[in-house]
Design a protein around this nucleic acid. Structure first.
Lengths: 196, 196
DNA sequence: CTAGTATACGGAGGGTCCCTCCACTTGAAG
DNA sequence: CTTCAAGTGGAGGGACCCTCCGTATACTAG
């Protein structure tokens, strides 16, 4: 939506029809197989799409490129939730609602997201459009809360992302435990009382 | 200390001297190489220790066994901190001190711990003595706080471990950010006020 | 000291991945 | 139909984890 999705081949001719079709086949196959298996090999994705391994690598030069392409749609959903919450709720309600929604989303895709996380750990310099949009969504909600004085100012949205994201991809916690921890983090997010 | 470390070959004869020596060489090599490189291959560990790959696998049948062996000593240190804090501080001070110490330790070994984390994610049924002792140490501190009424009762030590451990192994946060987030989590850990 | 044997060693090689390379095929412009 | 850039597929290189088994050696009994 905010980022254009189609190939922009400014000078040359348009993308060939078979290439476009294979791109879509690969993307659909990747999404299905990540949802079903959690992780998988490049060979399995190509096989499922019914194309050769070389074709997969033509469309997605690195494994991370497949993962990011699948990730993109999911991020759209989360960003939409953030924008809706900000538009319709009080600052604190939006923070509360969005963090719970974020964890619900991330928990559901934990095995897939673990893949992404590992890519970022192995290659810290790696940038990823989708991830940046996600962080921007969190900032949107958190900074509004800070502006309204209902969220402490000594942590920022990216840091909260860095706390809750890894929690969700950790295999050791159940959904209920994640939810309870979010509740606790929300309490910690309120501006600290002057005295205790 | 609590767990005996030597091989107990009840019926047969004792372990051969060269085997013992190679075991120690391998452990030392693994520790050095994990500290320096973050992650590594089994071949590199064997080479550094000056033994064949077969010898490495005789002593540590799976990769995770090497990682756990290295992990064990580190856990001893953290457990000792928990016991000292509980013995010398007020319940809340002990929680505060221990969580900061835990994060400081985990952050320093983040690349190595990522290895462990991945092993647990790939194999959720996996049990690991060292990890259980670590969780017990956190429970010791947290449950004392709960008993004294200074820590909320709707989260437990394992959950806090599940929140802060993954945070430390996440490559996206700096040491300062982790510390600030621990501060926030500590605020969230206090029993929630009845009204807000 | 010697011989016998359980124990330990080393590394070739099997299986799985990620990814590269390039000879072959095909869509589409003229 | 001709032409050829764009696209395809899969063999194979390189890295890794791990297994297998022939060889070597540390202990023990005599």
């Amino acid at each position: 939506m905010t980022i254009q999705d189609e190939r922009v081949e400014s000078p040359g001719r348009a993308q060939r029809a078979d290439a476009r079709r294979n791109h879509d086949l690969l993307l659909r196959a990747a999404r299905e197989i990540f949802d079903e298996e959690g992780d998988t090999s490049m060979e399995a994705i190509a096989k499922r799409a019914g194309v050769g391994i070389g074709t997969l690598y033509r469309h997605f030069p690195k494994r991370i490129d497949v993962v990011e392409a699948v990730y993109r749609d999911d991020v759209d959903q989360v960003v939409a939730v953030a924008e809706r919450d900000v538009a319709t709720m009080t600052p604190w309600e939006a923070v509360d609602s969005f963090l719970h929604a974020f964890v619900a989303y991330a928990f559901g895709k934990r095995r897939f997201l673990t893949e992404l996380r590992e890519a970022f750990e192995k290659n810290p310099g790696l940038k990823c459009d989708a991830r940046e949009r996600l962080e921007a969504a969190i900032r949107l909600v958190v900074e509004r809360g800070q502006g309204a004085g209902v969220v402490r100012r000594d942590v920022n949205g990216d840091e909260i992302f860095g706390l809750l994201g890894p929690m969700c991809t950790s295999a050791s916690l159940t959904r209920e435990q994640c939810d309870r921890l979010v509740g606790m983090v929300l309490d910690g997010l309120r501006p600290p009382a002057a005295t205790h």
